[in-house]
Computed example of a mutant assay.
Amino acid sequence: MNQVKTVALLGLLSALLITVSYWLIGGVTGAVLGIGLAALMNFVSWYSSDKIALAAYRAQPISPNQAPGLYRMVQRLSDRANLPMPKLYIIPTAGANAFATGRDPEHAAVAVTQGIVNMLPEDELEAVIAHELSHIKNRDTLTQAVAATIAGAISFLAQIVSYSLWFGGGSQSDREGSNPFGLLLTLMVAPVAASVIQLGISRTREFEADAGAARLTGNPRALARALQRLEASARQMPIAANPAFEPLLIVNAIPRQALSNLFSTHPSTEARIQNLLKLERELGTSFSVR
């Protein structure tokens, strides 16, 4: 069901890009350009999603000699999940977070911050890595990168046209016969709508990755404990990065207490923990809280 929902949301996001191009650029020419832009963005995301995301967080590759324990952990979990060993990266920040990226399991990467490696005990770090490997196995890494790229293109297009209207007035011939009210509404609503759809895609994938991690490690409570620690750490030491790529992270880079579920990149930590504890009961396992 979540897979169907994700495909539907991605289709809606691409349709929104085409519609925005129709209104902001004008008529059939704009719609055709929007289709071309959507296709181009999807191709770029498919081929370069790992490079884009890793660059956004300034992640640096690490070798087995630099982090032998982490490599052994990832290799063990990858073998258990029947996945190729992903490339490993470290994000040089004291903030605690992690993400996975890549167009498919053969071109995947897992990036962890220095802070999360230092903060979490081994079983909780293993649970976080398992969560990221579940994203790779479900191909969420590509889905989220495509969503982020298209949403970013919509916002960028709206911003460019807005600047044109404010400072240059735009080309009247380009928008001949366009509805000024529709144009204004598109400028205001389209970026918000794109963000809402992108965030909806992100939330549908997090519950699946949590469940996959719990089954991979056999220890749902370890991930529940890790999520609690990570949320508390993010409040004290948020990670500054491009917000378009925040859905890739295991928890929000900057927690937002007053943010409604509609505008959240992730389900609430409380809801995720409750799901994990429910899964623990279903699996018939029990682990003590530290």
Rank of each mutant, 00 (worst) to 15 (best):
L70I: 05
A148H: 05
A127P: 03
G212H: 08
L199E: 08
F181V: 13
M237Q: 15
E282V: 09
I150M: 07
A111D: 03
G11L: 12
T143M: 14
I129A: 04
I136E: 01
M85K: 02
G168V: 07
M1G: 14
A127I: 00
G169T: 07
E106Y: 15
P238Q: 11
M119P: 04
S78F: 04
A148K: 06
A53V: 14
I250H: 00
T204K: 13
N219E: 08
L33N: 08
L10R: 05
E231H: 10
V28N: 09
L279S: 04
G95V: 01
N275Q: 15
T217W: 05
L249H: 12
A130K: 00
M237I: 11
A226Y: 01
R290M: 12
L157M: 14
G30F: 03
Q66S: 14
D210N: 11
V20Y: 08
A130C: 04
R175F: 09
R235Q: 14
S45E: 08
G26M: 02
A190F: 06
V4K: 13
E231C: 04
L125K: 00
G218I: 04
P247A: 01
R281E: 13
P86T: 01
S21G: 12
D50T: 12
L24F: 06
V189L: 15
M85F: 05
A147P: 03
P86D: 06
S173D: 15
T217F: 06
L37V: 11
V161N: 08
